[in-house]
Amino acid sequence: MLVDIENLRITFENNGKRFEAVSGVSFKLEARQKLAIVGESGSGKSITARALMRLLPAQAQVTADRMLFDGIDILSQSEREMRKLRGGRAGFILQDPKYSLNPVKTIGNQIAEAWLTHNKGSKKEARDAALNLLEQVMIRDPQLVLNAYPHEISGGMGQRAMIAMMLAPNPSLLIADEPTSALDASVQAEILRLIDELVDTRDMGLLLISHDLPLVSNFCDKVSVMYMGQIMEELAAKDLAQAAHPYTKGLLNCLPSLDEPRGDLPVLTRDPQWLEEQAQ
């Protein structure tokens, strides 16, 4: 079992006001498995992923009955051990490479640096490793990208470089938070295909955070639908069209269609009972 989370709760406290952003989330993820957590903005999907890497600000209180990554109890690790885990055994890909790559360093140096933090070797070896990684993420002219600065390459290329950087330490888990929502449709498809291949060939697990139900249904094995800090429904991605929960159905049903004209789109009515049902 790669990830095993049981009853995760995240509470923020601000000026004496408590706000529970995640209330009792549980899921499991195995190697070679692709799990998507899907939800709207404010559903708590992103902070769930961040909690797994302990990347939340200090005022967030995280509790869980069980929070294991590869058998390691995340909550009891020291900060130093966590640093080794992050960007080591687990890679984190964010939405926009524009903001997650360092603008004043070349792509090659950034990847080489990532490789050196988790491997022993000379500068030359690190650079060769970086070139090799860029080849693995299917960049057409890796030698050119190696010496380029982030602003000189396109968004899709930047996201590939970001993925290459995350692959440097040979992680067993890849967490991707909306990795393609800043990209064009054509590039989006290519990046997803790339992640898919990498997960398969390297026996990694993938935790994909997304707002896009149709997208994850084509791409993942399992889908957890999150709403207001709770998981409404967990199902196999291929069964998404037969989802049982009214929230999941509502999300799928309110999309405009390219195939046929629709009059007014059905509007999602949120039932407060959804949250109570789960709490029981």
Binding site: A185, S186, Q188, A189, D212, L213, P214, L215, S217, N218, A237, K238, L240, A241, L252, L255, S257, L258, D259
Partner: peptide, 14 residues
């Protein structure tokens, strides 16, 4: 055509 295909691929559920 390419945009239509992509739009469809990304919008349809499996």
């Amino acid at each position: 055509r390419e945009l239509v295909e992509l739009g469809q691929a990304l919008a349809s559920t499996a």
